[in-house]
Design a protein around this nucleic acid. Structure first.
Lengths: 340, 340
DNA sequence: CTGAAAGCGCTTACAG
DNA sequence: CTGAAAGCGCTTACAG
């Protein structure tokens, strides 16, 4: 069943059929009705390959998800899919390893599939700096800040990670904690964790407490298993810590489990704060205090901006999306005499 | 940059270029080298739309994921993607609501995108029974059993849910529990939860204990939030329960949180068993006893079978994939005198 | 082993 | 408002 059959069956020409299918204005009401009738009768849907080939277009929107176990990304992804679908856009999704080069991948996809736009869920700024210039379609980066890269086809929406981390540390400080460990990510300047750690350092400096990255910081990937191991390493090295800030909720959840295995009660013996605000953080025992990023806004702005850039060539925007420090049960306020 | 440019640049014809690109045997070594040289020089990749249009093919493999918050599915999906990618297959992924009609969705996709095969992650047997006959390409259903549907283009790999649930109940019985609640899914005969509940009933009957679905069973969707609410309802109605079997780990995790809020200690006051074996179940406090489904085998067999069906038209297979009852910390063995 | 040509199923100026 | 025709970028018999 092709558009040709519909033409024959409806008594109109190919062109007219194509026009009604594409909601062209210059079609008589009569033609529209006749054609739609046979289209519906046969449940016809146009062949997308032919359509895109002819239109030299750009088949769909590609979403590249960095790090597949990331529950924050799953949450955002889901919303993105729904929104694009509601707009009638097809979405192609690919999951990449936490360490994969997403920009190279996009480049290859661009040649093969010719998507009309890319939406990156997470990314490594090093790859963007090096290879992004070859990407010519509109792109949106979510979760990382891309404003200092200066590409005119790249927008970004992100949480102000540095400020958020600083606030977490301030909060811990206000609760009386002075010996605070940090868990997760790595020190590479191009990673998202870098900005979070920078916020940590800024708070420490401001409050005049010591934060020795060599001893009080333990890098790890964003998973419960890695958080578990990293927490053990950190706590064995620095048993006097009274609080731990994990740069991701999944890391925090793994760390909490490690603490329990070490015989530490949370928050009586040690306090924990996470980052992201995934659903699990609300149901853990104890409930996890964390920085809640805003998946709904991230998804909404990302989709809206990408679509606008595709249709109207807008200038790029780089916006920070509000976060929220949510205080739950995993942090203990130290008695005043313990301070200092 | 099209194949035509490559032809011009290499001094060969369109046909020859196409042949080397597709690894056709009837090409001289010299032609291959020359063509590949300019292909690589320009980083050329053929336009997939044109290719598929011409081949009248079936552009990719479509994966339909039922219920987007399902962490077991995320796990399987990730493996599936990696496997298809390794085989050079493009994958189109769509997330559907837990209640959406995945077969109708596939039908529509079949017309528009003409995928060469479908892989369903979860499904409602009612939809399969009603609409699947219109689907003509090879399909694989994962997680549900499709053997009694009798379609010759549908294979399935699933856990023996009934037996697994029966074993959970037997296990709880052996630990001395007699008043056991069940949480999750619904009683519709076409849902996966139906078979799990059937296993529950079979065990109860066998052991001669009472299982009153009206009172001891509380339906809910597969999420922590719903598990939380359902657990409260169940426990308020039946405070004398000593154990709860949640039909999904996320439900169990939500339920555990509800119990903690009710002042119940796990497993001292109440025991909990989940289903699925997602990573979180290993890191919760306490660690969750559960039925571990086998995502690796499910993914592997699903991909392999679908590819074979596509390339060699194999007869359908319906296989059960082994599960494992893993006993961790959330179940308490009742003292002997408490039995009865 | 290679080239010339037809055609996959659409869309879109171009006439009328 | 409608039809006839060109052409999107490929693949694949068909000759040679």
């Amino acid at each position: 069943m092709t558009i040709k059959d519909i033409a024959r069956l409806s008594g109109y020409s190919l062109g007219t059929v194509s026009r009604v299918l594409n909601h062209h204005p210059d079609v008589s009401e009569q033609a529209r009705k006749k054609v739609m009738a046979v289209v519906e009768e046969h449940g016809f849907e146009p062949n997308a390959n032919a359509k895109h080939l002819k239109m030299r277009t750009r088949t769909s929107i590609a979403v590249l998800v960095k790090g597949s176990h990331n529950m924050l990304f799953s949450d955002i992804l889901e919303r993105i899919q729904a929104k694009f679908e509601a707009r009638g856009e097809e979405v192609y999704v690919a999951y990449l390893d936490e360490d994969a080069n997403e920009v190279q991948y996009a480049l290859s996809l661009a040649r093969q599939r010719r998507p009309k736009g890319f939406l990156f869920l997470g990314g490594d700024m090093e790859f963007f700096r090096k290879d992004f210039k070859h990407l010519t379609v509109p792109c949106v980066l979510l979760t990382n800040f891309g404003g200092d890269l200066g590409y005119d086809n790249l927008s970004s929406f992100s949480t102000d990670d540095m400020t958020a981390s600083e606030q977490v540390m301030d909060y811990l400080y206000d609760c009386g904690h002075r010996k605070i460990g940090v868990l997760g990510g790595n020190l590479s300047i191009d990673q998202i964790s870098y900005r979070r750690i920078k916020g940590v350092c800024r708070s420490a400096r401001k409050k005049g407490i010591l934060f020795d990255t060599g001893r009080q910081y333990e890098p790890c990937r964003y998973s419960m298993a890695d958080g578990y191991q990293a927490a053990r390493r950190l706590l064995e090295r620095e048993p006097s810590l009274t609080a731990v800030f994990a740069l991701g909720d999944v890391i925090a959840l793994g760390a909490m489990r490690a603490m329990a295995d070490l015989g530490l009660r949370i928050p009586e013996d040690i306090s924990v704060v996470g980052y992201d605000g995934i659903p699990s953080s609300e149901y853990s025992i104890p409930r996890l205090s964390t920085v809640r990023q805003n998946p709904e806004q991230l998804a909404d702005k990302g989709v809206r901006t990408l679509l606008q850039a595709i249709h109207y060539e807008m200038p790029p925007v780089h916006e920070r999306v509000p976060f929220e420090l949510v205080s739950r049960e995993s942090v203990r306020r130290l008695p005043a005499d313990a301070e200092r």
